[in-house]
Design a protein around this nucleic acid. Sequence first.
DNA 1: TGACATAAGTTTCATGGTGTGACTAATTCG
DNA 2: CGAATTAGTCACACCATGAAACTTATGTCA
Lengths: 230, 230
Amino acid sequence: MRERTATASRSTSPRGAFTVDVALLTPLGQQLGVLALRSNRPRARDAVVLPWDTPRAGEALADTAHRLLRTHIGTVPMWVEQVAAFADAKRHPSGAALSVCFAAVMPGSAVRPEGPAEWLDVDGIAALPDRQRQMVAAAQHAIRRRMDYEPIPFRLLPPHFTLSELQHIYEVLLGRRLHKASFRRALHASWLVEPTDHWRSEGRGRPAQLFRYAPRRRRGHRRGVRFDLL
Amino acid sequence: MRERTATASRSTSPRGAFTVDVALLTPLGQQLGVLALRSNRPRARDAVVLPWDTPRAGEALADTAHRLLRTHIGTVPMWVEQVAAFADAKRHPSGAALSVCFAAVMPGSAVRPEGPAEWLDVDGIAALPDRQRQMVAAAQHAIRRRMDYEPIPFRLLPPHFTLSELQHIYEVLLGRRLHKASFRRALHASWLVEPTDHWRSEGRGRPAQLFRYAPRRRRGHRRGVRFDLL
DNA sequence: TGACATAAGTTTCATGGTGTGACTAATTCG
DNA sequence: CGAATTAGTCACACCATGAAACTTATGTCA
């Protein structure tokens, strides 16, 4: 066990130091799940917390986040990015004045994480400390925004996937249904995926063709201003 | 003078504390300018720095940024937002391990700021400390992204403005030219501006009608996924 | 075997947004 | 007056979008 992980020590960091907290999101059925650590004292105020730690000497923020993820899920997800710093009066398990939140995504897995870790439904995060509740909301918001510029959903799928699986990931991340024909038309027009020779039969219904994420030459198409989101 | 402002003290903050730094951007002709403070020791390594300070006890991050802005330009701009936290080994004038960057925008003014403050061209920021150079770049990047969701350019204009002025702001912030007809067509289609009864004669050329920022009823138009930015 | 359910994938149509260049309009200056 | 300058519009080709209907390929079960 590592020292200074969230479950090992609580409220023992010196005041004034800062923490790095990780909101690791994953598809959990039709919802989003976030990785939380359950303490062995279920009656305590911090019964469930996000993974957090203080950086080691000379360690970059992102490296602290990576180390936390390696510790708790054994690997570093394909997508990890800083969301924001939080320093208001809201409670944090460390007592630190400031916490930097990192968001990460990993493929959906039916397996329950081992140890004190578990998946929490993003809509059932009332048990988290106040500051970490804000963090989960901010992480979800950041992901939805950055999806427009980064291929985050593809990081949540194996190398080969069906278009229905891809659409389902988009729907879970965005929290709304998408239209099948429009989704596929736009996807193909962007030359982001490439069909393979393999098909997957999922029981009933027509088999689905497997695709690979293989972005083609970008036509450097500077688009105009979009006012419709203001 | 306030204690602990950027020009008053250098490298005197306790190590381990963190700073709040502000990148205040403004249109400067065809370019962007950023507010910098020139020290009275021009030969020093930190000849020019962004405004920064450490938060007071119990002060929220945004409040520290607001206080800095009030100190140096006398008012709090209409748009101030956190960009990110920086904590790598790059040099910061305070010596602090971590710095939280805030971006802000204010209307272009031909007036030179008073005191030790001055406008630095965003492309001529080599004189800034390493970490603050990163901050200015990140602030510019963040603004370009958030312009799609927030009416930041309107915060850079007086209550009444011409459409040419608005387009010029967009061009300076985005760093590229826009097509006049497309810009206006999209703008009007979004019902963001409202014509007034006033016109402005700017010397030569046809007078321009003045508009007001008056966003109309949003038709809750959930748009599909955009793959063309990936 | 054949009807049905189910899921993948395509087609079609109406509508509306986009880039572009050319056009008109109103003013100042010489 | 006429040229220069800036504001504002138009027309056209093309692309993107939402929606619904349609086709294809499988499994299920009588």
